Computed example of a mutant assay.
Amino acid sequence: MNRLAQEKKVCALIPARLNSVRFPGKALKQIDGIPMVVRVLAAARNSGVFDAVYAATDSPEIAAVCQTYGFEAVFTSHSHQNPTSRIQEAVTILEDSKSASSRKFDFYAMIGGDEPLLTPEILQNFMEQALTVITSKENVQRPFLINAMADIPNDAETADPSNIKVVCRPDGTGLYISRAPIPFRKGTLDEPSRKFVSIGLYTRESLDFFCQSRPGILEQIEGVDLLRFLEYGKTILFLPICGYTLSVDTPADLETVQAILHRRTSTL
Rank of each mutant, 00 (worst) to 15 (best):
F184N: 11
F184Y: 14
F184V: 06
R185H: 14
R185D: 11
R185A: 15
G187E: 10
T188M: 10
T188S: 03
T188V: 14
D190C: 07
D190I: 10
E191F: 14
P192W: 09
P192S: 13
S193A: 04
R194I: 15
K195D: 07
K195M: 12
F196Y: 09
V197Y: 04
V197D: 10
V197S: 01
V197A: 06
S198R: 14
S198M: 05
G200E: 07
G200W: 15
G200Q: 05
G200F: 01
L201E: 01
Y202T: 06
Y202R: 13
Y202Q: 13
T203N: 05
T203Y: 13
R204L: 08
S206T: 10
S206C: 05
S206H: 09
L207R: 07
D208K: 02
D208G: 04
F209A: 02
F209K: 02
F210A: 02
F210H: 14
F210D: 05
R214M: 04
P215C: 03
G216W: 05
I217Y: 13
I217V: 02
E219Q: 04
E219I: 10
E219F: 04
E219T: 15
Q220G: 13
Q220T: 08
I221N: 12
E222A: 01
E222R: 13
L226M: 14
L226P: 11
L227K: 09
L227T: 06
R228S: 11
F229I: 08
F229E: 04
F229W: 03
L230H: 12
E231T: 12
E231C: 02
Y232D: 12
Y232R: 14
G233E: 01
G233Q: 02
K234P: 07
K234D: 05
T235P: 00
T235F: 02
I236S: 00
L237V: 08
L237G: 02
L237M: 02
L237K: 07
F238Y: 01
F238W: 14
F238S: 00
P240Y: 07
